[in-house]
C-alpha cells in the first residue's frame, strides 16, 4: 500500500511537471498566437449612446476577423474617466481594449482625472464628429457672420447650449467665440438631448452639438445649421460650410477610436491594428456611421497615436485658456 501511494505521488508529480512544460510552451508562443480567448472592449459611456453603438458594431466585426468572442462592457461616470482608468490599470495583454473618445485628450486639462490618451496605444480611429452651430429656424440670422455680429453687439446675451461643462461641444463653441472675438454665455446641459430640447423650447439661443443630433429638427424645418466646426463638411448637412471656410480658424471636433493600455506587446498591438483596419473596411460599420450621421474617418494605430498626441497638446493649452481652468 505504501509503495503504491508513493508511486501514485510520483506519477502525479510527473504529470504535473509535464503539464507545466506544456503550459510554458504555450505561454512562450502567446504573443504571436493572439488572441486565444475572449476580448473585452470597455465603453466609458452608457449603453445605447453613440459610442456604445459604434463599439458594438466594431466588436461584432472584430469578432469575425479574429475568430474569438468580443464583448462590450459599459463603465460610465466622470465624463468617461472611470472606464478609461479601468482599462489603463488592466493587464496590458491586448485582451482589454477601450473605446477612446476625444475626451481622453481633455480630461487631464479639465482636472477631472489623471488618465489621458498618453496612457494608451491606439489601434485605430473610426470616425470624426463635427459640431454644428444650430439656431431656431425662425431666428433672424441666416449666416454665421450675422449671428456673430449679433453676438458681438450683445455680449453675453447669446445663450449657447452644449452637452456638458468641459464637453467637446463646449470647447468647440468657446473656441469659436475666441476666434470671432465675441462673448457667449455657455449653458451646459446633462447631455445633448436636453440641450436640443432647450433650443426647441426657446430657452436658449443656439446649440453646439453634433449634426446627427439636430438632423430630425433640421429636416422638420424647426432648426437651421449656420456652420459646422470640423475638418470637412458633414454628410448630414452637406451644404453647410465649415467655420474654417467661413474665415474662422477653429477645428474642435469629436472623434472615436480604439486603444489598448500602454505596455501591451508590440506584436499584439500590430495584430489588433491590422484587424481594425479590416473592420474599418466593413460595409456594416460604414452604413452604421452613415445612418447615425458620423463621418467615416479611419486612421491606423500609428497615425492615431500621433494625432492623439497632437490633440492632447492642443487641449492642454486651449482648455485652461478657454474655460479658465488651472
Amino acid at each position: 500500500m505504501k509503495l503504491n501511494f508513493f508511486k501514485a505521488c510520483k506519477a502525479a508529480a510527473v504529470g504535473l511537471s509535464l503539464a507545466a512544460c506544456v503550459g510554458a510552451v504555450t505561454n512562450a508562443e502567446a504573443a504571436p498566437n493572439f488572441p486565444r480567448k475572449q476580448i473585452q472592449i470597455v465603453v466609458p459611456y452608457a449603453p445605447g449612446g453613440a459610442s456604445d453603438v459604434v463599439a458594438r458594431i466594431y466588436g461584432k466585426e472584430l469578432e469575425g476577423v479574429l475568430g474569438k468572442p468580443v464583448i462590450i462592457v459599459n463603465r460610465t461616470g466622470a465624463s468617461g474617466a472611470i472606464g478609461l482608468e479601468s482599462v489603463k490599470n488592466a493587464r496590458p495583454d491586448g485582451y482589454t481594449m477601450s473605446y477612446m473618445p476625444v475626451e481622453s485628450t481633455m480630461l487631464k486639462a479639465l482636472g477631472i482625472a489623471e488618465v489621458s490618451s498618453d496612457d494608451f496605444d491606439f489601434v485605430c480611429r473610426i470616425m470624426t464628429i463635427p459640431a454644428a452651430i444650430t439656431v431656431s429656424a425662425d431666428a433672424p440670422w441666416n449666416t454665421l457672420d450675422e449671428f456673430l455680429t449679433y453676438a458681438k453687439e450683445n455680449p453675453g446675451k447669446v445663450l449657447v447650449g452644449n452637452s456638458g461643462s468641459g464637453s467637446i461641444w463646449h470647447v468647440a463653441a468657446a473656441s469659436l467665440a475666441k476666434a470671432a472675438g465675441v462673448e457667449f454665455t455657455h449653458v451646459p446641459f446633462d447631455g445633448a438631448a436636453p440641450a436640443i430640447a432647450g433650443l426647441l423650447g426657446k430657452n436658449i439661443t443656439a446649440v453646439a452639438v453634433s449634426p446627427a443630433e439636430v438632423k430630425a429638427n433640421v429636416d422638420a424645418g424647426q432648426f437651421k445649421v449656420l456652420a459646422v466646426i470640423g475638418d470637412a463638411h458633414s454628410s448630414v448637412v452637406p451644404d453647410v460650410k465649415t467655420t474654417r471656410e467661413l474665415g474662422y480658424d477653429v477645428t474642435a471636433m469629436g472623434w472615436g477610436g480604439f486603444a489598448v493600455p500602454k505596455g501591451t506587446p508590440e506584436e499584439v498591438v500590430q495584430i489588433l491594428s491590422d484587424a481594425s483596419a479590416k473592420v474599418a473596411q466593413s460595409e456594416n460599420l460604414k452604413s452604421l456611421l452613415k445612418e447615425r450621421g458620423f463621418e467615416y474617418a479611419p486612421l491606423t494605430g500609428t497615425e492615431m497615436d500621433a494625432f492623439a498626441k497632437d490633440q492632447l497638446d492642443q487641449y492642454s493649452q486651449l482648455i485652461p485658456e478657454l474655460l479658465g481652468k488651472k
Binding site: 465624463s79 472611470i82 482636472g111 477631472i112
Partner: peptide, 13 residues
C-alpha cells in the same frame, strides 16, 4: 466641471 469632495478618487468623481 470641477471636482467636489472626491478625495482624489476617480470612483468618487
Amino acid at each position: 466641471a470641477v471636482k467636489r469632495y472626491t478625495m482624489d478618487s476617480t470612483s468618487l468623481a
